[in-house]
Simulated scan of single mutants.
Amino acid sequence: MTLRTMLTLSTAMAGLVFANAAGAAEYRIGITQNNVGVDSYQTTYDKSFKEAVEANDAVEAVVLDAGGDVARQIAQIEDLIQQQVQAIIIWPTNGEAVIPAVRKAHNAGIPVIVTNSNIAEAGFDFVKSFSGPDNITQGSRSAEIMCDKFKEMGIETTAQVVQISGQPGYTTAIERQKGFDDRLPEVCPDVTIVETQPGDWNREKSQKVMEAFLVKYDKIDGVYAGDDNMGVGALNAAKAAGREGIIFVGATNFAVGYEAMEKGEYWGSIYQSPVDDAKAALKTAIDVLDGKELPFLNYFDTPKITQDNMSDFTKPVF
């Protein structure tokens, strides 16, 4: 199959239409993504989604990117409604703010599939299915990884932890923080989370956040980051300051996190593939259009990865 691209001008932004050039596709699906250029996970997701569409003769997709801008994403959803796509996949920039636009799609008879990061519960009635990871479980598993390491070190009664969360208002960030905050006191009740600050999924910002933590706190035993990109930013700050012995735990095991684990500098994370994420979103949309019964929360598994078991996992490509 040959890839055909053409520019689609809209009120939201220019997008690419990926289709089978041999003939009319059976399904026309629109997707508006969160922020493709912000990190390697989202870049790989975008590439994998386009490849999955290209490999499926039955599908044509209008692929849009909100660039992290809520207003742009809302305009993109409204534009996809006007284009009369048969299904809309949304990777929300903000789980609350997009609800009115998702409601418009629902009222127009267009099924909405949310990918990767869910919208707020108030919008669930307007969504056909969510496809992605269970982010609360990821946060819980990260807490367990950290607690187990503290117990191995014998500091589970005195350890102090700082947390670098993701983008404020973003459901994944909220859920991973909740999973960690709720689970850590259950497994290590004497460990203290002394402060949480957002890193916005950005390595450089997270490094600055960690630099401020290091100045403020003489004792930091662990760092939990909402993804490995931010976690490695924090690690870089600690290395530059000469602060050793800190246990770094993240989520969404990026290649940089995997490499830092190989060096013995970064302890653990949660293994999640953007390739699986993208393929699952497209499959969910097709299954919905085929009339298949799906669970509302259509999760894929994301296991723990640490220095102890990392040989069981392939190095991430993102």
Rank of each mutant, 00 (worst) to 15 (best):
T2V: 05
L3D: 02
L16I: 11
F18S: 03
A21E: 14
A22F: 05
Q33D: 11
V36A: 09
T43R: 14
S48R: 04
F49L: 13
E54A: 13
D65Y: 06
A66R: 01
V70L: 08
I74V: 14
Q76F: 07
D79H: 06
L80R: 02
Q83F: 06
Q83C: 02
Q84C: 11
Q86D: 06
E96R: 14
I99W: 12
R103V: 13
K104N: 13
N107Y: 14
I110R: 01
T115S: 13
E121K: 14
K128R: 13
G132R: 01
P133V: 14
D134H: 13
I136W: 03
G139D: 00
S142D: 00
A143D: 00
D148I: 02
F150G: 00
G154H: 11
E156R: 12
Q167D: 09
Y170A: 04
T172C: 07
Q177W: 02
Q177H: 10
K178E: 10
G179I: 00
G179S: 04
D182T: 13
R183G: 02
R183I: 00
L184K: 01
L184T: 01
C188E: 03
P189C: 15
P198S: 11
W201C: 02
E204G: 07
K205L: 11
K205C: 03
K208E: 12
K208Q: 14
M210A: 15
L214N: 02
D218I: 07
A225R: 03
G226L: 03
G226Q: 13
A234E: 08
L235V: 07
A237Y: 07
G245M: 11
I246R: 04
Y258F: 13
M261H: 07
G264F: 05
Y271L: 01
Y271W: 11
L282E: 08
G291Y: 14
G291V: 15
G291L: 09
K292I: 08
F296G: 12
Y299C: 09
Y299I: 09
D301A: 15
K304Y: 02
T314F: 05
K315C: 00
F318R: 04
